[in-house]
Structures are given as structure tokens and as C-alpha cells.
């Protein structure tokens, strides 16, 4: 098993897009009570009406395990500049390929929590 590859540990110890975003127009929070993981997502979405809505900038904060934090760090890098419709189509498979590993059932929820938070923020945009 090779869950804790260098790249995951690197994202955990030096998370990208970590912190707060002053120009955010949407935020969300997700909590995994049983393990005490918590993630806050802040997004600046540009475009409205007929122009495509894209993720101009994004930050995350909170605390969680290495899988959770690395997933948040990698996902925020990936979705920056993406169309929100495309972000809504991302799934666990995409998260697993970012992490470069498949997860056992008990770890899946750690990895998808950031994606759920991002999608929840987008849904609340309307």
C-alpha cells in the first residue's frame, strides 16, 4: 500500500490555496463529525447570465487528515479556472485519480469532503 506518497504528504504539509479569499462571493462548510474533519471553502465565481460562470479563485481552510487536506489542496488547484458546470460533474473517481490511489471504504469520505463542499458552494450560488 502506498497511500502516503511524497506528493500527498507534500500537499498535506504545504497546502495550496489554503486560507481566506477577500473577494469570495460564495462560501460553504462541511463537517465530518465522526472524525472531526472540517473544511471551509471560499470561491470567487465570475460571469453570470449568458457568459460562462468560472471559478476565478478559491481558498480552503479547516482541519483534517492527510487524505482530506491533500484532496482539498489538489482539488482547489484543479478547479481554478474551470466552468462551474464541469466542476459539478466531478466525482470520487476524479478525486482518486488526483490522489493517485484508490481508497478503502473507510477513507472515501475523508477524500470527497472537499469536493462536496465545493459543489455545495456552487449549488448555493443561484
Amino acid at each position: 500500500m502506498d497511500l502516503y506518497r511524497e506528493v500527498i504528504l507534500d500537499h498535506y504539509k504545504h497546502p495550496r490555496n489554503f486560507g481566506h479569499l477577500s473577494g469570495a462571493n460564495v462560501t460553504s462548510e462541511e463537517i465530518n463529525v465522526s472524525c472531526g474533519d472540517r473544511i471551509v471553502i471560499e470561491i470567487a465565481v465570475h460571469g453570470s447570465g449568458k457568459t460562462p460562470r468560472v471559478i476565478a479563485d478559491i481558498r480552503f481552510s479547516g482541519e483534517g487528515c492527510a487524505i482530506n487536506q491533500a484532496s482539498a489542496s489538489m482539488l482547489t488547484e484543479k478547479v481554478k479556472g474551470m466552468d462551474v458546470g464541469a466542476v459539478m460533474k466531478l466525482t470520487l473517481d476524479d478525486v482518486q485519480s488526483l490522489l493517485g490511489t484508490t481508497l478503502t471504504p473507510s477513507r472515501v469520505k475523508c477524500a470527497v469532503l472537499p469536493l462536496e463542499a465545493i459543489q455545495k458552494a456552487i449549488v448555493s450560488l443561484k
Binding site: M1, L3, Y4, C35, E63, G64, C65, A66, I67, N68, R107, C110
Partner: peptide, 12 residues
């Protein structure tokens, strides 16, 4: 270290 990561590494 987060407890999840501890348990996972110990599992190895």
C-alpha cells in the same frame, strides 16, 4: 498526525 493517518499507517 491526524488520528486517521495514524490508524491507517499502523494498519500497514
Amino acid at each position: 498526525a491526524h488520528p486517521h493517518d495514524i490508524a491507517q499507517l499502523l494498519n500497514e
